[in-house]
Amino acid sequence: MNIFRLLGDLSHLASIFILLHKIRTTKSCAGISFRSQALYVLVYLTRYLDLLWGPWLLYNTVMKLFFIGSSVYVLYLMKFDYKPSHDMGLDNFKVEYLIGGSFVMALLFNLAFTFDEVMWSFSLWLESVAILPQLFLLQRTGEAETITTHYIFALGAYRALYIPNWLYRWVMEGRVEFIAVFAGIIQTIVYADFFYVYFTKVIQGQKFELPA
């Protein structure tokens, strides 16, 4: 554990609390992509298969259970409690391509051609692009509530903070997880445009608006 990884994980936790806070306080899931949220459930379920056989490190286990539980809970909230506020017409990014592409990448790049390693690799490739339906929805609506942009920022910052963590571990421990590193870099690039608008507008106190 180093400071970058810890900050990354805290950013990930914060993103979920911001999302839940947004849904509760605005009593609406408007602007939140159901498709991205569903992809996150798939990401966590396929990555944390090792919960079934261990080893169960306390920190990791608690976090894994939280990420699975909270992502399923958000889906539940969107599907039932706050269903009418959901932008179903605009939230129509073709996730089949993201899932299919990630699966092909997982078949090509994995540590071993076993079910759990292919699923682990799949989860990383899928996570790297899982925000695309959310960014697509943002593009379609052209603007976003500030709290929604804080959510997306915290979620993107989590993986961006893992990059110095990997650099640190490579230098200090000689440890490199190539799949995680490549997928993490792709994920951060996917967020680049969003980060730019977030830093130039939201941080300056302006509304998140995309040029028409």
Binding site: K64, L111, A112
Partner: peptide
């Protein structure tokens, strides 16, 4: 999974 590397990150 343990043979090659253990995935100890989230």
């Amino acid at each position: 999974s343990a043979a090659l590397e253990t995935h100890d990150e989230l």
